[in-house]
Simulated assay, not measured.
Amino acid sequence: MSDSHKTSAMARLRNYFLAGFVVCAPLAITAYIAWSFVGWVDSWVKPYIPARYSPDTYLPFPVPGFGLIVALILVTLIGFLAANIVGRAVVGFGERLLGRMPLVRGIYGSLKQIFETVLSNRNDMFRQVGLVEYPRKDVWSLVFVAGEKHTEINEKLDVEGDPLLGVFMPCTPNPTTGFLMYVRKSEIVMLDMTIEEGARLIVSAGLVAPDPKKKIKGPDGRLIDLANPPAGTLPQPARKSRTASSRPNK
Rank of each mutant, 00 (worst) to 15 (best):
P102C: 05
T30Y: 12
A82T: 11
D138P: 02
Y182I: 05
P230Y: 14
G232A: 10
T177K: 00
P55C: 09
L142Q: 10
L180C: 06
Q236M: 05
P55M: 06
M125F: 07
S110E: 14
E148Q: 12
V86E: 06
P219F: 00
K46S: 06
P102W: 02
S4C: 07
G65E: 08
R12C: 09
T117P: 03
V159N: 10
A89N: 10
I33S: 06
G106V: 05
H5S: 13
R105I: 04
N121R: 11
P26Y: 07
R247T: 00
T7M: 14
R105P: 01
M10V: 01
I69C: 12
S186A: 15
P170E: 09
S120G: 09
R52N: 03
H5N: 10
I224Y: 02
G218L: 06
W40N: 09
S2T: 14
Q113D: 14
T177G: 01
M101E: 06
V45D: 08
P50Y: 14
V70D: 04
S36P: 04
A83W: 08
L72P: 04
G99T: 08
T233A: 10
T194H: 05
P175E: 02
E187N: 13
K156P: 00
L111P: 01
L180T: 09
V118P: 06
T57I: 00
R136V: 03
N228W: 07
G147E: 15
V91W: 06
